[in-house]
Design a protein around this nucleic acid. Structure first.
Lengths: 228, 228
DNA sequence: ACCACTACTTGATTTCCGTCAACCATGAAC
DNA sequence: GTTCATGGTTGACGGAAATCAAGTAGTGGT
C-alpha cells in the first residue's frame, strides 16, 4: 500500500474521482509506485504489456523509434493520464515506448489485475471509456495537423491549444524544445525557424522557455484557421 | 424496429456479439437504419453529434477538410465499425466528417440513447472499451507512419497491413486510388509514382484495382522494417 | 461511332523542410 | 577563470514530395 503522500496524489486524479474509493483501493492493491527521473524508460515498444501506468505527477512522453530517422514523439501526457490501456486490454505489444520527460511519480497497475477489475467493476469500464475518448480526440487532431497543415501552421495551432484552459497569454515550454519539435512532427531546426518567424512578425514574444502571445488573431491566421 | 435483413447484419457485428441480445435490442429501439450511396455525408466536422453510427455494410471514410490544402482522409472503416463514439460521449463537436465511400447500410443510434445505455449496461461500456482500444492503435500506427516514414515507405507498410489477415498475396483496392493516397498522407500523384516504383522493382504486379505482392520480403525492406 | 467525363499517369517545376555544419549561449566541473 | 557538454540558433544545401500541367485510359451517354 502506497504512502500517504502518494495516496493524496492518487485521490486527485480523474480516474479516482470517476471510479470511487472502493474500486480505486482494488486498483492500488498489488500495484506499485515508482519515482523516476527524466530519460527513464517505463515500457518499450514491442514488449508485452505488464502494467497500466497512471501518471501521478511529472510528464511522460510516448515515443516511437523509426528505422532510419530520429525518434518521433507521439504525445506527451501529464498528471492524471492513464497510459497504454489499449495494449493492456488487448494483450498486444506496446506500439510505443514510454519515456519520462520530467521527474514523475507513477502508479503501475498490473496488467492482469487491471483487466480483471475492468471486467467486474462497471465504473472502471465507464471511466476508461471517457478517458480513452479524450485521448482519441488528441490523436485525431494530431493526424489532421500532420496531413493538412505545414510546419509553421502546426506550431501556431499548438500554441493556440496550449493557450486553451490557460489564464493569460503566457505559455511555458516544459520540455526541451527538440522534444516539442518532434511532437509537432518537425525537426528542431524547423521549430526554431518557425518560432523566429512568429517573433519577427510581432505575433509572439519569446524569452527562454516562455512565450507570450501578443496578437492571438494573428496566431489564428498563421494556424490557417482564418481563411484570409 | 429494423427489417429482418438488417437484423441479420446487426447480429453479425462485433458489438452485437459482445453486448448480447437484450442490450442490442435496447440499442436498436429508437434507432434508424439508412442505406446510403457513395458521397453521402453522414455527419459533418464541427457539428454537434446526434448519432453513433454502426456500419452494417459498405465503407465509411472519416474526412477532414483543411483550409488551403485538399481534404485529408483520416481513416476508412468497414462493416462492424462503431463510429464517433468519443464525440457522442463527450458531447463535443465532431472533429471529422463521415463520408460514405461504398454503398453502405448504417445503424444510427441516437446520442442520448447511447449515452444512457452506456451508463446502465456494463456490457456496452466493456465492449466500447475494447473497440475504442483497437481504433486507438490504428491511429497510433498512422501517426508513426506520418512522422517517421516517407511516402514510399508508407505505401509499402500499408500494403503489408492489407495482406495481414488475408489468404493469398492479392490486395483489392476498394476505394478510388486518390482516396487511398489521402489516407496515406500523400498526393494521388505521389501514390501513383510510389506504386510504379514498386512495380518497376518487381516487388508487386498491378492490374487495375488489384495488386499482387510478388516478393513480400522486398516489400518489408521497402517499408523500412528490415534495416538492410 | 463520337463526345464528355472521370480516374489515373507521367513529366516539369517549385516549395518546403530535413540534413549538415558552424556557431552561440548557458551552465557545470574543476 | 578555462574547459567541456548540452541545447539552441542560423545558414547553406539537397532531396522529397506537392503542385501545375498535359496527356492517356476507361466508361457512359446519345
Amino acid at each position: 500500500m502506497p504512502q500517504s503522500s502518494t495516496l493524496a496524489l492518487v485521490r486527485e486524479t480523474e480516474l479516482a474521482h470517476r471510479v470511487g474509493e472502493p474500486v480505486m483501493m482494488r486498483l492500488l492493491n498489488g500495484s506499485l509506485v515508482q519515482i523516476l527521473p527524466p530519460r527513464a524508460v517505463l515500457f518499450e515498444e514491442g514488449a508485452e504489456p505488464e502494467f497500466v501506468h497512471l501518471v501521478l505527477s511529472g510528464r511522460v512522453g510516448l515515443v516511437a523509434s523509426g528505422g532510419t530517422t530520429q525518434e518521433a514523439v507521439i504525445e506527451i501526457f501529464g498528471a492524471g493520464s492513464l497510459l497504454v490501456v489499449p495494449a493492456v486490454i488487448l494483450s498486444l505489444p506496446y506500439l510505443v515506448s514510454g519515456v519520462v520527460l520530467a521527474e514523475s511519480r507513477l502508479l503501475l497497475i498490473r496488467a492482469d489485475l487491471f483487466r480483471q477489475i475492468l471486467n467486474d467493476e462497471p465504473t472502471l469500464a465507464r471511466a476508461v471509456v471517457d478517458m480513452q475518448a479524450q485521448h482519441w480526440r488528441l490523436l485525431i487532431e494530431q493526424i489532421k495537423d500532420l496531413k493538412l497543415r505545414d510546419a509553421p501552421q502546426r506550431l501556431a495551432q499548438w500554441l493556440l491549444r496550449e493557450l486553451e484552459g490557460q489564464v493569460g497569454d503566457l505559455i511555458q515550454i516544459n520540455e526541451p524544445k527538440r522534444v516539442v519539435a518532434r511532437r509537432l512532427g518537425m525537426s528542431p531546426e524547423s521549430f526554431s525557424r518557425a518560432i523566429a518567424a512568429l517573433e519577427e512578425g510581432g505575433v509572439i514574444r519569446v524569452d527562454r522557455r516562455s512565450i507570450t502571445v501578443m496578437r492571438r488573431s494573428a496566431l489564428e491566421r498563421a494556424a490557417g484557421l482564418l481563411s484570409a
